[in-house]
Design a protein around this nucleic acid. Structure first.
Lengths: 187, 187
DNA sequence: TGGACTATGTATAAATA
DNA sequence: TTATTTATACATAGTCC
């Protein structure tokens, strides 16, 4: 959308392509943000430039949340597809076949059942880890607050001490001076 | 971009919000496609509407490719940031280590940093596991499709055979009839 | 519900600094 | 390189059907 109409095909000039990417990726992220706010939806955008650099936008804190929901959707679709496409089989045939498929080991030696189990375990661990992390971070913050208080107190004391020492030094300097100098200094 | 300037905040009117979502999501996908072609980059967009419906665009055949590369990036960043004993572990070892770590609740050895790292590793494993699971389930579906085709063929054959047998039975019945009945039947 | 219209706001290609 | 400017193309909010 500039001085002239642009055909949608790879921009051959490297510098133009780079500039276009810079502008358009910003624009895309802005629009993604706008739709997420205006329409109250979750949006994730991932761009991987040809130099391998990653650019991302996510309406929530982390992409992973949205991506997990994407995975869930895919799984649901698969199940829906299974349901509709194989309605011609009898229930018995379908069950047998599904079980056979599920138990058939793959290259990793892990069945879908194994994977689901593993997934659950990982999920549980993740939740525990996150709870523990949050707890520790809260404690850290508390501890830091305490530390801060102590430091403030110390600082106050030090300032008081310094003020006192300064005063004392002045007095000492005066008393350390030779009498004649002291006398002179009075004139 | 319309008759008037629009403030970027949730559109309260439901119908307006819905219409805006429809237009803007189309626009977003179009722009995503444009940048992917013009600038020769991989782009993935996932939108989950508040009613839970999924909309997506991906410059490659499947989102998973881009998302895996996203995960790879995240992992690479983590590994670049801090070298850890965890990153070289398999999922199983990771789980074991996590459980071991969680058991010694009082130990001071487990810092927040450790926990964040563990969390990231678990997250990565979880995503890998889910991708693998999805992949396997897709394969199952494919296999079931093949099976369905075969079953349909068999069914067809069986129906043909049954039709032929029926016909043969009729012919036999006819030939069993007395000659005068047969003759009459022609008028 | 789903286009089609159109006035207006936005995005951006190219030029410039 | 990155920022600013300008001229245009593009997107879309409100509207009608």
């Amino acid at each position: 959308m500039g001085r002239r109409k642009l055909e949608i095909k790879r921009i051959e000039s490297k510098s133009n392509r780079q500039m276009s990417f810079c502008k358009r990726s910003k624009g895309l992220m802005k629009k993604a943000k706008a739709i997420s706010i205006l329409c109250d939806v979750d949006v994730a955008v991932v761009i991987i430039s040809n130099r391998g650099k990653l650019h991302e936008f996510s309406s929530t804190n982390s992409l992973t949340g949205i991506l997990q929901r994407y995975e869930t959707h895919v799984e649901a679709e698969i199940q829906a597809a299974e349901h509709s496409k194989y309605s011609s089989m009898t229930t018995g045939e379908l069950l047998e076949e599904t079980e056979r498929q599920l138990e058939k080991t793959n290259a990793d030696g892990l069945t879908v059942t194994d994977l689901i189990h593993l997934e659950n375990e990982l999920q549980t661990s993740l939740i525990q880890i996150r709870a523990r992390k949050t707890h520790l971070m809260l404690e850290s913050v508390k501890a830091l607050h305490e530390k801060e208080k102590l430091l403030r107190k110390e600082k106050k004391h030090l300032e008081k001490n310094r003020a006192r020492m300064k005063k004392n030094r002045k007095v000492n300097e005066m008393s350390d001076l030779p009498p004649q100098r002291v006398t002179l200094s009075f004139f």
